[in-house]
Design a protein around this nucleic acid. Structure first.
Lengths: 235, 235
DNA sequence: CGGAACGTTGAGCATAATCAACGACTGTGG
DNA sequence: CCACAGTCGTTGATTATGCTCAACGTTCCG
């Protein structure tokens, strides 16, 4: 079957990634230039400053995007999940370091080829535009958090954010949440130190709003209202 | 002369705004739906939460984009200058308050009409995509600043930023800078208080890196290297 | 068993916020 | 013309938030 993208047929993100803007016919052109790549946990996919030669869709797993100062301070500026697009196109140099948080599958495209496909597929370009705008809006919310919220508010917001993305609610109203990152990464995401993250979590646990086993990345939200009241103070 | 956009002919941003992606012919369709609007200093152009019914190009002047918490804390998430595009398209509700910093001319389009023009003009859509990506990258840099830099570093970076955008250098190497915003707005931009901004500026003045008349928005950078060393510490 | 990585907790400290007072400048009204 | 209030910026004193430094417990591996 000529050019029919076998690999794409059973792809986990066929209907959520940028590919979902293409029909099976169109997908052939994209499929031709894409290659699957497995990235093991903790590996750096791209260093800030590298030439921008490729981009990708996240198929499974998770990535973090970090910006850093010359003296080594780090800020996580984004977390990416299956279906998300990664890469800095239309520019020759990257500004972010990309690291996998867990074993991750990528569908990688050479940048030049991807840009050519984009030229010819307005629906995909539109989808990318909408997603870029959504990322920008998310970034604006995070600027508000980083600039104006207390550490307590930021930790509470973060837990709710993760709960909304991946949490599963049981019949008693408790929400099981898997926090995909370490304390250190939470700190880098929230613009604070490991110690402060740990202390704030302990305070929430003491207050009965959450529980978790010591050092564990699984967390149960017992009192969502409590966290919401802290994350979004009305006055 | 059929549909030839008279108003656009002598437009100050004909060659820098999104319009620069269109030839005179194409511009007619955009011109038809655009209307000039003058916004006086301090006026709110849009409140966060309003329906997203229009968008615009900044023709002259300057705008600030602010995000805020329910209890009134504000963070400036962007400053817009002539040639910049304003508005949240592809979404029905706005999330940002837009305020003019000085008397500002806008070229306003109804959102629906603008989106239709975008559908039909891939070069303009591409330009908007590139600009949105640039805004996102800028936002990522600001997340790093807000999350990981000291107030001193942030104020120094800000002065350099403004100098690079609008500063004029004279023969002795000093740079005249007009800071387009009040101390309060600098604080909102940099995620700190008015008092801290003032103190950091005083420190730079005392150190001989800058001068300014008390309370003035015009500032002279005497020692760019000093500010750079503070803004970008190497170790 | 030893070491490394990670998380927690405590003590002390520094940075920046808060609270307060004051000076300079602007525009208004007497 | 001056008195006045209002806004904005500066400066000082005090407080609190969150960082730094340090110690220690746990878990996971070799």
């Amino acid at each position: 079957m000529s050019g029919f993208p076998q690999r794409c047929l059973d792809c986990l993100v066929r209907d959520t990634a940028l590919c979902s803007s293409m029909d099976d016919q169109e997908l052939a052109t994209l499929s031709e230039i894409g290659r699957r790549r497995v990235v093991h946990a903790g590996a750096v996919v791209n260093w800030a400053g590298d030439a921008s030669t490729s981009c990708a869709n996240v198929v499974s797993g998770a990535l973090k995007l970090t910006a850093s100062t010359a003296d080594g301070r780090e800020q996580i500026v984004g977390l990416l999940y299956p279906g998300d697009f990664v890469g800095q196109i239309f520019t020759d140099q990257t500004s972010l370091t990309i690291t996998s948080l867990v074993d991750t599958d990528l569908c990688v495209f050479p940048r030049a080829g991807f840009e050519r496909v984009l030229d010819e597929h307005p629906r995909m370009e539109r989808m990318l535009l909408e997603r870029t705008m959504a990322s920008l809006q998310e970034a604006q919310g995070r600027m508000l958090s980083l600039g104006r919220k207390s550490t307590r508010e930021r930790v509470a917001s973060f837990l709710l954010e993760v709960a909304d993305r991946t949490g599963s609610r049981d019949e008693t109203g408790t929400i099981r949440v898997h926090v995909p990152i370490s304390r250190g990464e939470m700190a880098d995401y929230l613009g604070m130190t490991i110690e402060t993250v740990s202390r704030q979590l302990t305070l929430f646990k003491t207050a009965g709003a959450i529980t978790y086993a010591r050092g564990d990345r699984d967390c149960t939200i017992l009192d969502r209202g409590h966290l919401e009241a802290i994350a979004f103070p009305d006055r």
